[in-house]
Amino acid sequence: MEEQQSPFQAAIKPGLTIGLVSLALTFIAYFIDSSLLGSAWFGLVAIVLFFVLMMYFGKQYRTELGGFMTFGTAFNFSFVAIVISGLVGLIGQILLFQVIDPSLAGVLADQGFETQLSIMESFGQNPDSMDPALLEEMRSSAANSFTLSGQLMAFGFSLIVYAIIALILGAILKKRDKSLDY
């Protein structure tokens, strides 16, 4: 009889696959037009693709387990796969922003700052009436998110978001064997 993989072992390949797909999508967008990386629709496409792939690999693992999976197993599988995917993405983004094109960080930071200002205007706040020191703090905060330390801190905070996403995926992917009910 073939031995089943633990959720941790089973999550390595899907995590690497999702991370590499995400990285490929990022680099394709970068080579087409680097401003795409800061657009909302690009982020939406990436999130939808991420969830589709996680659901696919999660259902595939559940099938390997005989069609049933507990919530804990589904959560562990999802969380490990997401963390591995995130690490692959982090490495790729560090390469992109620190080695391949260090000027890209400034362009995306400016784009993000302009987006923040337009959102504020849509809520009735006039950026011209704001304290210049606050505007400069917003601009530097946007720029700091692309530094090496900013990227590492963002990944650390992302672990909380990853856990929440894994909880949701665990609830979706779990399936109990009702034949065992008395």
Rank of each mutant, 00 (worst) to 15 (best):
D131A: 08
V21E: 12
Q5H: 03
V99W: 13
Q98P: 09
I119G: 06
S140V: 13
L173G: 11
A143I: 02
A40Q: 10
F97Y: 15
F57K: 03
G72A: 07
T26L: 13
I18N: 10
D101S: 15
I18Y: 09
K13W: 02
I165A: 15
A133P: 02
E64H: 05
M138Q: 15
G15N: 03
G112T: 12
L16A: 03
Q60D: 09
V21N: 11
R62F: 04
R139F: 08
F68N: 04
E121P: 03
G124Y: 07
S35Y: 06
A29G: 06
M55F: 08
S158E: 08
F8Y: 07
I32C: 07
G86R: 10
F68E: 05
G156L: 11
D128F: 07
L95R: 02
F31I: 01
T17A: 13
K13S: 06
A166N: 06
D101E: 15
M138Y: 05
L65R: 13
V52L: 14
R176H: 14
F157C: 03
S158N: 14
Q93H: 12
L148H: 04
E136C: 06
G19L: 08
E137Y: 03
I47D: 01
I12E: 07
N144H: 09
S179D: 14
F157S: 08
F71H: 02
E136Y: 01
M54C: 12
S22P: 01
G15M: 05
F57T: 00
A109H: 05
S122I: 09
F97G: 07
S141F: 04
G112K: 07
A142R: 08
M69L: 12
S129L: 14
S85F: 05
Y162A: 15
L104M: 09
R139E: 14
F71I: 00
G19M: 10
F51A: 14
T63F: 06
V52R: 00
L173E: 10
S145N: 14
A142T: 04
S158Y: 07
A133W: 00
L96F: 08
L36P: 03
A105G: 15
Q116T: 13
G15I: 03
S141K: 13
T115S: 15
D33S: 12
G72W: 01
G19A: 10
V52C: 05
V107N: 12
F31Y: 09
L104T: 07
I168A: 15
T70N: 05
A29K: 01
F79C: 06
M138D: 08
Q5C: 00
M1E: 05
P102H: 05
L173W: 08
L49A: 15
E137V: 00
Q111V: 04
S78H: 01
A29Y: 01
A166L: 10
G89I: 03
I28P: 10
R139L: 14
K178R: 14
K175N: 15
A105V: 08
